[in-house]
């Protein structure tokens, strides 16, 4: 087996487009999922009981089934209930829904990890519930959940590869197709693997820097 970097050079524009596709779907779905995940966790905590139960069911179902099956259900099953989506919107929606469930669990644990006393101290000086959430819980939680959020984002980076199965033209699909055309599928996959590895390591590195910068807010306890 020879590693043929010509494979990349010859198809650079296509690969760059695919790379861009992977990156933007990853970033947009993660940003949306962090926002929705936070909303889900907050509603489960402060919302009415029936809504909390419903959201819990949603989270459990998403976390208990494979992402691929969710994608198939959305992409192939969607049209039967009037939801005909092209691969890219379907992929984006699927990623967002999937990640929302996981992020919501991270935030739920984050809410629970803030010591009750910190909230009581805020109540005692007269902060309202909204102020307590905004000024105490969210910032405290942020530093608690940041490592898990970074992990989750990296996990999602790898999950983007699965979008190739519903023909989203992202890296895995495009590089795989180029490899097949040139009868160099193994080489192509090998380069692809190295590339994902690099992406994951770089994201992990950046995540650790962010954590280090927040570490001075670490918990003070007697």
């Amino acid at each position: 087996m020879t590693l043929d970097f010509g494979l990349i050079v010859q198809n650079l524009p296509e690969i760059l487009a695919a790379f861009w596709m992977t990156i933007w779907i990853w970033i947009v779905s993660n940003i949306l999922a962090v926002a929705f995940g936070f909303a889900v966790a907050t509603l489960r905590r402060y919302g009415p009981g029936w809504l909390g139960l419903l959201l819990r069911l949603f989270v459990e179902v998403i976390r208990g089934t494979p992402f691929l099956v969710q994608l198939f259900l959305l992409y192939f099953g969607g049209p039967f209930i009037g939801l005909s989506l092209d691969p890219i919107p379907a992929g984006l929606l699927g990623m967002t829904v999937y990640a929302t469930a996981y992020y919501s669990e991270i935030f739920r644990a984050g809410y629970n990890a803030v010591p009750v006393g910190h909230v009581e101290a805020a109540e005692c000086v007269g902060l309202t519930r909204g102020q307590i959430i905004r000024r105490i819980l969210v910032p405290e939680m942020t530093m608690l959940v940041l490592p898990q959020c970074v992990n989750m984002a990296i996990l999602m980076m790898k999950e983007t590869a699965i979008l190739s199965i519903i023909t989203v033209p992202e890296l895995t699909l495009v590089v795989g197709a180029i490899g097949s055309q040139q009868y160099a599928f193994v080489e192509a996959m090998f380069l692809l693997a190295l590339f994902y590895w690099f992406l994951v390591e770089v994201s992990g590195f950046l995540g650790r820097i962010a954590e280090a910068r927040l570490s001075k807010f670490r918990f003070a306890h007697s």
Binding site: M1, E159, I162, T172, F185, V186, A193, Y196, W197
Partner: peptide, 22 residues
């Protein structure tokens, strides 16, 4: 680092195609 850094799908495609190739 490698096996946690590469999507499982890519690993599977690689192994599935690599074995016959060698």
């Amino acid at each position: 680092s490698l096996f946690r850094g590469v999507p499982l799908l890519v690993q599977l495609l690689l192994i599935y195609n690599l074995l016959p190739a060698v």
